[in-house]
Amino acid sequence: MNGVPRFLWLPAALAWLLVAVPVVGLLLRVDLSNFFALVTSDAALAALWLSLKTGLATMVCCLVLGGPLAIVLARSHLPGLPFIRSVVLLPLVLPPVVGGLTLLFLLGRTGPVGGFLYDEFGITVPFSTTAVVLAQTFVAMPFLVVSLEGSLRTAGERYEAVAATLGASPVTTLWRVTIPVVLPGLLSGSVLAFARALGEFGATITFAGSLQGTTRTLPLLIYLQSQDDIDGAVAMSLVLVVIAILVIVVTRTRDVR
């Protein structure tokens, strides 16, 4: 540790405090006597349940769609791969509200795809729980793809080449070698995507609205309550903080091992 120049210590400490102090402030602000009642109100429980449900559904969508995408990005030799990869990363830098708007234009009743779905099948996507999952998948997918593609590139193709010389077909190799070898990256990527979905606000409120029990997830409820019932908002924020810390503990301990 002797190698760290001394002038870096002050900004480093400030950076850490900038993250840590507000969280501690939140803890101090919590109304402990009413905490249990606040987080078990009907609205809170409905939001919590919806958040967990859509978060898990988002994680599954990310795995089923983002997993194959990561493998294609890491292993194929498609022309224009850098372009495809930049598009995947777009939701990381795009304001989520803009993401929600683009989904609304695409899948709204007057949009090109949404209009077709409504006219042919009578399906309306926006302002439904499906819309929540779509919005969350839009913002959370890059986390899984980036994490998994990194693991795939680190592992390299050596094990897959060995498996092929041992007579394993590409499909056998995928299930018995590639996926087990990158399993840690796959798990931490999934947990990160889940955590990102849990915190999603902008894309959800633009594309799915805020209907209790259907589209009002925990962050939406917190924002709504912070307008008039600050104690309730703080209590539910604490719930999210605890979940976030759990996620970090789970992914970090895996990385360290």
């Binding site: 050596r158 080449a161 060995v162 498996a163 007579g167 070898v181």
Partner: peptide, 21 residues
Amino acid sequence: VPVHRRRVGLLSQQALLFPHL
């Protein structure tokens, strides 16, 4: 003929044992 149907074994410098097995 694809690699997995050649019946050609390959042993390299690194053992490259599958780490999860």
